[in-house]
Amino acid sequence: MRVAIAEDNPLLRDGIALLLAEHDIEVTAAVGDAEALLVAVAADPPDVAVVDVRMPPGHVDEGLRAALAIRATHPQVGVLVFSQWVETSYARRLLSEHAGHVGYLLKDRIVSTGEFVGALQRVAAGGTALDPEVVRQLLATPAADAGLARLSDREREILGLLAEGRSNVAIAERLHLVERSVEKHVTAIFTKLDLPQARTDHRRVLAVLRYLRS
């Protein structure tokens, strides 16, 4: 896996680079602002770009705007937003406009290096990795969705865990269920959301997007 890092705090930037090196992950670029990240990605596209939200020169939303630009111009490059801030409007756009290859983690909630590296691997593979707090804020003001309204409490709980990027095995362990039971619930979710199986669509991602948009 090859990763580019955009973080304006030099200590944190160097720390992330060292962490990735310890896991045999190549760092293609480690820069301090969003513009430098865009240049680096264009010159040598990585598998994933790790991006802070607030970066020079304005320290407002430069990182997230760069993340959206990367997903639009380099769809093969995943983006993992890594910040202490939750910007729901940008997060919703990232998830709704670019299904898969997207993550959003909060710095102060990462408890292990394995968790961070695992999130990178999911994003690189085309999946999602969302902090539960990000999901909570995205769902703070849900709108009506007839398909979602048909879901049972258990199915909504499982769909929320899918939105965090968890696998069926991880969900089964979290909810103390057998994996086969989780598989049946996930299939029921697809049915109630009218998501038929198709070669060109990833139903898990589509279900999560429905959940977040609501």
Rank of each mutant, 00 (worst) to 15 (best):
H98T: 00
T113R: 10
G78N: 09
E183F: 04
A91P: 06
V178L: 04
H101P: 01
S89D: 15
R210V: 11
R210A: 14
Q137A: 14
V77F: 04
A170R: 11
H101M: 06
L195F: 10
T187D: 13
K192H: 10
R122K: 15
E155T: 02
R136K: 15
A149M: 09
G78M: 09
A66T: 03
D145E: 08
I171L: 00
G160M: 08
G147S: 13
L106W: 08
L138H: 06
L94I: 07
F82W: 13
S152M: 02
R213Q: 08
R109H: 15
I70P: 04
E155C: 03
Q84K: 07
R122V: 09
N168Q: 07
R136W: 07
A91E: 05
E97C: 06
H185E: 15
P75H: 11
S181Y: 02
L138A: 06
Y211K: 01
H98M: 00
A119K: 09
F116G: 08
L120W: 13
V205R: 10
L159N: 03
Q121L: 09
G103W: 05
P75L: 07
A170L: 05
D131V: 04
A140F: 03
D201T: 15
V205H: 14
D108V: 14
T141Q: 11
E157T: 14
R122S: 13
V81G: 01
Y90P: 04
E87C: 07
R203E: 01
D145R: 05
A66P: 07
S83T: 15
V111C: 00
V208G: 03
A172K: 01
L206C: 10
E164H: 06
E157G: 13
N168P: 02
P132T: 12
R154V: 09
I158D: 05
G147T: 11
L151K: 02
S112E: 12
V178P: 00
R204Q: 04
L212A: 10
G114I: 10
V86D: 07
G160A: 13
H98Q: 00
L68A: 13
A170W: 00
L95N: 00
Y211N: 04
A188N: 15
R210E: 12
L193V: 06
V169S: 10
